[in-house]
Design a protein around this nucleic acid. Structure first.
Length: 275
DNA sequence: ATGGCTGTTATAAACAGA
């Protein structure tokens, strides 16, 4: 089961690239961010034609998140992050899909720092940490996937010294990410590739993609009940090189099938031995 | 340090992104 996250930077302007990527890589579940479209302008028909059911939480001009699935209907469990200080911003959507609870998120950028946007980022992050704790307490198999707008460590930035004052890499933001992960989440990509330089974002400016001047800010976090199923994680880096592409590259994980429960089959069932 | 690019739209002497 492949689960991907992709900040499309405009779902309508990006539609040809999105459809090509879906066809070529066939992810089972996809979290999209930065739809930049209100609900009524989400391209549901084109996405359905590509074989995906979808739920979405749109917003005019900015933000907007969606969950796509080709392996069963996403059953929406939440729209909007509990405790979001500005609920008008569409940044969170959650659904049960094929036995996994998927939280798709678009964490605020937070620049300039300091300032009200940075305060909003910190507050949103605190609300996410609180909700993530509730999700863990439920013992459900959960993946939190999306654009976190945080580079967790220096390994995740092409030039860390230039980013220390930026809202994506400031000490207090990295500390929040560390607090979230310390609840018991597994950073999938870093877990499987502890020492590799891997980026998920390349600025449109200054030929950043060709220079590999990137950031790792798109993450898939796994609850303890899912971590054992992780078999692969990667970035579709080539997609960043396509015409009219997003400044983010799709990021994905592979999960092994759940271990089947050892009840019936291995030994006579309770029903079979009952009088 | 600055400015470079892109999508959306109040089509800009704009805004936001990261």
């Amino acid at each position: 089961m492949r689960i991907a996250t992709y900040n499309v930077n405009g779902v309508n302007g990006r539609l040809p690239v999105l459809l090509r990527w879906l066809a070529e890589t066939q992810p089972d579940v996809v979290c999209l961010q930065e739809l930049k479209a209100p609900d009524e302008k989400f391209p549901a028909a084109a996405i359905a034609d590509a074989g995906y059911e979808a739920i979405w939480h749109g917003q005019k001009s900015w933000n907007g998140v969606a969950i796509l699935s080709r392996i069963g209907t996403p059953v929406e469990t939440r729209r909007g992050l509990p405790g979001d200080p500005d609920p008008a911003q569409s940044r969170y959507i959650e659904a049960a899909v094929a036995g996994v609870l998927v939280g798709g998120l678009y964490l605020p950028n937070g620049n300039p720092r300091p300032g009200p946007k940075f305060e909003y980022k910190l507050q949103w992050f605190e609300a996410l940490i609180a909700h993530a704790a509730d999700l863990l307490a439920s013992n459900a198999p959960v993946v939190l996937a999306g654009d976190f707008n945080v580079m967790p460590t220096e390994l995740d930035v092409y030039k860390p010294e230039r980013w220390t004052e930026d809202a994506l890499f400031a000490p207090e933001v990295r500390a929040l990410y560390a607090r979230l992960v310390a609840q018991g989440w597994t950073d999938s990509l870093r877990h499987l590739h502890p020492d590799e330089t891997i980026y998920t974002f390349f600025d449109y400016f200054r030929n950043a993609y060709a220079r590999n001047a990137g950031l790792r800010i798109d993450h898939l976090l796994l609850s303890p009940s899912l971590a054992g199923r992780l078999s692969a994680a990667g970035v579709d880096r080539d997609t960043r090189g396509w015409e009219k592409t997003s400044d983010h590259a799709p990021t994905w994980i592979e999960l092994k099938p759940p271990r089947t429960r050892k009840a019936a089959g291995s030994r006579p069932s309770r029903a079979a031995t009952a009088p």
